[in-house]
Simulated scan of single mutants.
Amino acid sequence: MEKFENVAVTVKANVYFNGQVTSRAVTFADGSTKTLGIMQPGEYEFGTAEAELMEITAGKLQVLLPNETEWRAVVGGESFNVPANVKFKVKVEELADYVCSYLAD
């Protein structure tokens, strides 16, 4: 994906970890939302309310998902799924650009 058509963008950024991670919400005509964001190099722990598809569009990171014991490498062009109501960790090695899609249960 390179471009979204006919969307509304929330101007106010979501800012986490003292500005190291930022995102903006995009709402589609059908009411679904995604967030577009940037993660600076560092280690972070996130919590989910909904199931998510994390698409890394550029950069390099490692992710540790719930119930897994080994970190998984993820680079631009790859993605991973995160279940609802869990915590997961990432180690960002290179500035990571991402799209987070919220998935219906």
Rank of each mutant, 00 (worst) to 15 (best):
N14D: 14
N14S: 15
Y16R: 09
Y16V: 09
F17Q: 07
F17Y: 14
N18C: 06
N18P: 02
G19N: 06
G19K: 07
G19H: 05
Q20C: 08
Q20H: 12
Q20K: 14
V21G: 03
S23D: 15
S23A: 08
S23N: 10
R24W: 04
A25K: 12
F28R: 11
F28S: 09
A29S: 14
G31M: 02
G31R: 00
T33P: 05
T35R: 10
T35C: 05
T35I: 08
L36D: 08
I38P: 02
I38V: 15
I38F: 07
I38S: 10
M39Y: 05
Q40D: 10
P41E: 02
P41N: 01
P41G: 01
G42V: 04
G42H: 05
E43D: 09
E43A: 13
Y44E: 05
Y44H: 06
E45V: 15
A51G: 13
E52M: 02
L53N: 14
M54A: 07
M54L: 10
E55N: 12
I56D: 02
T57D: 02
A58P: 03
G59V: 00
K60N: 13
P66Q: 03
P66T: 08
P66R: 03
N67Y: 10
E68R: 11
E68Q: 13
T69G: 10
R72L: 09
A73S: 15
V74A: 00
V75P: 00
V75L: 06
G77P: 04
E78K: 06
E78V: 02
S79P: 06
F80V: 07
F80Q: 07
N81F: 11
N81M: 08
V82G: 06
V82F: 08
A84W: 07
N85S: 13
V86L: 01
V86S: 05
V86E: 10
K87N: 12
F88L: 02
F88M: 03
F88A: 02
K89M: 07
K89N: 09
V90T: 14
V90E: 04
V90S: 03
K91P: 02
V92A: 01
V92C: 01
E93Q: 12
E93Y: 13
E94R: 04
E94M: 05
E94G: 00
L95T: 15
L95G: 13
L95S: 15
D97T: 13
Y98Q: 00
Y98D: 06
V99G: 04
V99E: 08
C100N: 12
C100H: 04
C100D: 09
